[in-house]
Nucleic acid binder design. Structure first.
Length: 637
RNA sequence: GCCACUUUAGCACAGCGGUAGUGCAAUUCAUUCGUAAUGAAUAGGUCAUCGGUUCGAUUCCGAUAAGUGGCUCCA
């Protein structure tokens, strides 16, 4: 009789052939009701599977990753069944669960319309109500091909699987799909479904293949959870940096200027100034030196660097200058290398840490552009670390620490670290070099007491990298920092230093951008704060609201006192009621409003209203000046 | 780049085969006011651009541009 080790460590003995569902029922009826799938010896399986041998077993509910996946995966089958009922000629491609819901790709005569989605949803409801059982069975290749004879995409999938593999299928009512599973036991659990959008998607993600029609959706065991999801979507929309950027007059794009090129308006530029000023000070304090380099460089430079070989499709077309080709820079590194090569260097000089807010231009496919988050011209908060090989581990750890510290200053203290390995296809350097450097990166992460995931094949063409993704106020992940090892440039540009023994040695080089790009970072910050920037970043830090004309002079005095402490202030002198002025300042998300009337004038005070906390009452002018100056100095979030 | 959709005043949106409206914002005037909208008046649009169909196009069709959601890519 098999022994089952449960999550809590207890061991249960059951008869061979007992299904996992029965095991769950044996524990509690309630658990059996909410369980969606199970993790058996680490692999997620259906509840209908039988226990034949000793195993560990963890029952998965919707709260567990594996439970969600089974739930959404089954929903995608329900959707496919509904689509087939309404569009019998639709051919099935794939329909997996994703991070946030599911999709299914179909090959159909005409794209789906919003009306189609409504009809499909309705059909799905019927399938859910029918509470169809999902039945798993396996076939050999020949039988599988016979079963899927009218499904060319499925046949392609079958033919790509190992010839001797047992292919699993799931059947619910009159719908059968090739699928590895796992799945729910029946369709009845899927209480709340919403189909979200239709999109084109290439078969197998390859643009050479046919464009299929993909339907995205989300589903939950309870209607209330779906409502919560919809609310979160609305919140994300409310925070959209494009919306806020327009409302608060921070930036714009213009089709005459060109796609993916941002115009920073005065208010946005003020925030950028504050970010950059802080960034520079922090870097100088941490052992970096600033450099500046041009925006364009000769073709020969990019030839030597390898960019014309490996990166050309991301570069702007060359411009002709006196018969020579010049390229707008897609990266700053070759220039930094040339600074290095301008002289001889001793091992005693290393490491160099050269930082530049360098504006680069990259040709992005037009469909990839998105607000400030994906643009064609952007400023990297770039730096290159050039060091002796033995200094490399310490430099990596140092920059990793520095990066997390910098992100924390902007209120990002939740993150996820990824180490990316050698890409398949085009990359420079020997595999053993890659392996060694990848190990060094992983060790640096571990040595800092941090965890990381591995992104296989996600490295740059010139070396492996560490990426840091932060979590924002809505729990969304954004990639900001990247720390990249480089095998390419030191070699190609023949960079050397003189070692202690007088020999010429090759230095190591590390690229790093911590905020990523200022444009992208700004976009993320706007969404993080929903436009309500903390005082230290806010373009206008206090707005002075004189009650009437006779308080204008005092308003000027207050403004003067604040400007003296580098506080950015504006005076709203308009002939409007104070309620109106407050409403506008509040909508402009100004951190502090100072109402000035007769009482304040007489007492030398200001009536303070905080954007967040509302009316704080009157306080002496110098108290407020001290308070806001301190808040700015401490960069309170 | 590919698929789908969108483009009407500064912004948000109506509308229609017979050359355009609403709200907010703007301007002017009156009001000098105590913590999220004072009132009145005025002005503002070659309906993205270029073609086609039509007696007539902002409306229908096509192309182009930009945008949006995806695919791909990625700071």
């Amino acid at each position: 009789m098999p022994n089952i080790t449960l999550k809590d460590g207890s061991v249960k003995e059951v008869a061979a052939g007992t299904t996992i569902l029965e095991v769950a029922k044996g524990i509690s009826e309630g658990l059996a009701r909410v369980a969606l799938a199970a993790e058996r010896n680490g692999a997620v399986v259906d509840l209908s599977r039988a226990v034949e041998a000793d195993c560990t077993l963890n029952l998965l509910t919707f709260d567990a990753e594996g439970g969600k996946l089974a739930f959404w995966h089954t929903t995608s089958h329900i959707m496919a069944q509904a689509v087939r009922k309404l569009f019998p000629q639709a051919q099935l491609a794939i329909g997996p669960a994703i991070d946030n819901g599911f999709y299914y790709d179909f090959d159909v005569e005409r794209p789906f319309t919003p009306d189609d989605l409504a009809a499909i949803e309705k059909e799905m409801d019927a399938i859910v109500k029918a509470d169809l059982k999902l039945e798993r069975f396996t076939l050999g290749r020949e039988e599988a091909l016979a079963l899927m004879a009218s499904e060319p995409y499925k046949m392609e999938l079958i033919n790509d699987l190992p010839a001797d593999a047992a292919l699993s299928f799931y059947r619910q009512g009159d719908f059968t799909d090739l699928c590895a599973g796992p799945h729910l036991l029946s369709t009845g659990k899927v209480k709340a479904v919403k189909l979200l959008k239709v999109a084109g998607a290439y078969w197998r993600g390859d643009e050479k293949n046919k464009m299929l029609q993909r339907i995205y959706g989300i589903s939950y065991p309870k209607a209330a959870q779906l409502e919560e999801y919809v609310k979160l979507q609305e919140e994300a929309e409310r925070r959209d940096h494009r919306r806020i950027g327009k409302d608060l007059d921070l930036f714009s794009m213009n089709d005459q200027v060109g796609q993916g090129l941002a115009l920073w308006h005065p208010k946005g530029a003020k925030i950028r100034y504050r970010i950059e000023e802080f960034w520079k000070k922090k870097h100088l304090k941490s052992g970096y030196e600033m450099v500046y380099t041009p925006h364009i460089g000769r073709g020969e430079l990019w030839e030597t660097s390898g960019h014309l070989g490996f990166y050309k499709e991301s570069m702007y077309s060359p411009m002709d200058v006196d018969g020579q080709e010049f390229y707008a820079k897609p990266m700053n590194c070759p220039f930094h290398v040339m600074i290095y090569k301008a002289g001889m260097h001793s091992y005693r000089d290393l490491p160099f840490r050269w930082a530049e807010l360098g504006t680069v231009y990259r040709y992005e496919k037009s469909g990839a552009l998105h607000g400030l988050l994906r643009v064609r011209g952007f400023t990297q908060d770039d730096a290159h670390l050039i060091c002796a090989p033995e200094q490399m581990p310490a430099e990596i750890r140092r920059v990793l620490r520095f990066s997390l510290d910098l992100l924390k200053d902007f209120g990002f203290d939740q993150y996820h670290i990824y180490v990316s390995t050698q890409p398949k296809g085009k990359s420079v350097g020997e595999t053993h070099q890659w392996d060694a450097a990848t190990v060094a990166l992983k060790e640096a992460v571990l040595a800092e007491g941090l965890d990381c995931d591995v992104d296989e094949g996600g490295g740059a063409f010139y070396g492996p990298k560490i990426d840091i993704k932060i979590k924002d106020a809505l729990g969304r992940e954004w990639q900001l920092s990247t720390i990249q090892f480089d095998f390419n440039l030191p070699e190609r540009f023949d960079m050397t230093y003189i070692a202690a023994d007088g020999s010429k040695q090759r230095p190591y080089m590390i690229h790093r951008a911590l905020l990523g790009s200022i444009e992208r970072f700004f976009g993320i910050l706007i969404e993080q704060y929903a436009g309500a920037f903390p005082t230290w970043l806010a373009p206008v830090q206090a707005k002075i609201l004189p009650l009437t004309d006779r308080h204008a002079e005092y308003a000027e005095k207050v403004a003067e006192a604040l400007r003296e402490m580098d506080v950015d202030v504006e005076i709203d002198r308009r002939n409007e009621k104070v309620g109106y002025k407050i409403r506008e300042a509040q909508m402009e998300k100004v951190p502090y409003m100072l109402v000035l009337g007769d009482k304040e004038l007489e007492a030398g005070a200001v009536a303070v209203r905080s954007r967040r906390e509302g009316d704080l009452g009157a306080m002496p002018l110098e108290d407020f000046v001290a308070r806001i100056a301190e808040e700015i100095r401490k960069r309170v979030n």
